[in-house]
């Protein structure tokens, strides 16, 4: 650790609570062996290509298009999940209606439902001869086996993130601030947009980023419902699997490293949003 080398500042502040050494050591050991070492192996494998090699893989038209599909559709899906997730969160916390608790419980379904199960269920639902797919086909929308299918699967897995990050904050909004705003003559719309919404923005952004990160990497639910067509509906994780089937380990690793870098940046952004929100609003 670099920190311990600096003599003046202590790495850790004094505390009467015991167990730091063992728990910290255990944490680092597990983290190192399970997460960091294998990820390092990935980076080493990809670095065999050199930076220029990785760049070449990234800009290969098929890879670039798969990355575009994964990131582009995930962006749209996260946006949709955030908007509707926000509405769902608002409705679930603010309004009382029959079945509210049930609806609240259902939100977590994508956390608990295995992706493969979600995949075959969505595929059979949105296929041209499926329950929803047939209706969509009637109005000329092909859902399954197109990027629309990828979008549906990504909204599915992203929704709980969008709802669950915002919901507790809505619950904690001080109603009296809204009342004060109303007393001071603001219309309901003004109150909502000027008083209620701003403190929610960091949470909405966090939920958005989580849904986005999850969508980019998603594989299980998507392969069943996407057409997997190069340049159209082929996602980056599938391309990794395809590269592996072609025995192109370095190429697979390069795509993985690119995705990893972007995920890491997304995560960092989430943590920055949270740090900023802690300073700005006093909570996460």
């Amino acid at each position: 650790m670099v920190e311990t080398l600096k003599p003046r500042r202590r790495f850790r502040q004094r505390s009467v609570i015991p167990g730091f050494g063992i728990t910290f050591g255990y944490t680092l050991t597990c983290l190192g062996l399970i997460v960091l070492l294998p990820l390092a192996a990935l980076v080493v494998k990809a670095s065999g290509l050199g930076l220029s090699g990785i760049w070449e893989v990234a800009t290969d038209p098929r890879v670039a298009s798969a990355l575009r599909v994964s990131f582009g559709v995930s962006l749209l899906a996260a946006l949709t999940a955030s908007v509707f997730g926000g509405i769902v969160a608002w409705v679930l916390t603010r309004y009382d209606f029959p079945g509210r608790k049930l609806a609240d419980a259902v939100v977590d379904l994508p956390f608990a439902l295995p992706t493969a199960v979600a995949g075959i269920a969505l595929a059979s639902l949105y296929a041209p001869n499926g329950l929803v797919g047939a209706q969509l086909a009637r109005i000329g929308i092909e859902a399954a086996y197109t990027p629309v299918g990828i979008f549906i699967a990504m909204v599915f897995i992203g929704l709980p993130f969008a709802v669950r990050t915002v919901q507790p904050l809505i619950a904690e909004i001080d109603k009296e601030v809204e009342e004060a705003s109303a007393i001071l003559g603001a219309s309901r719309i003004t109150t909502l947009t000027r008083v209620v919404l701003p403190p929610l923005i960091p949470a909405v952004l966090t939920g958005f980023a989580l849904a986005f990160a999850r969508g980019v990497g998603e594989y299980g639910s998507i392969i069943f419902i996407a057409g997997n067509l190069p340049y159209v509906s082929e996602i980056a994780p599938l391309l990794i699997v395809i590269k592996l089937s072609e025995f192109d380990y370095a190429g697979a690793s390069a795509i993985a490293v690119i995705m990893l870098a972007i995920s890491f940046v997304t995560l960092l952004a989430i943590n920055l949003i949270q740090a900023w929100s802690r300073r700005r609003f006093g909570y996460v």
Partner: peptide, 21 residues
């Protein structure tokens, strides 16, 4: 003319026979 490229022969059969594409 290929709208769906599955990863395996089985996937294609399912797409054609079960999903009606």
């Amino acid at each position: 003319n290929v709208p769906v490229l599955d990863t395996g022969a089985r996937g294609s059969t399912v797409t054609f026979a079960q999903r009606g594409l």
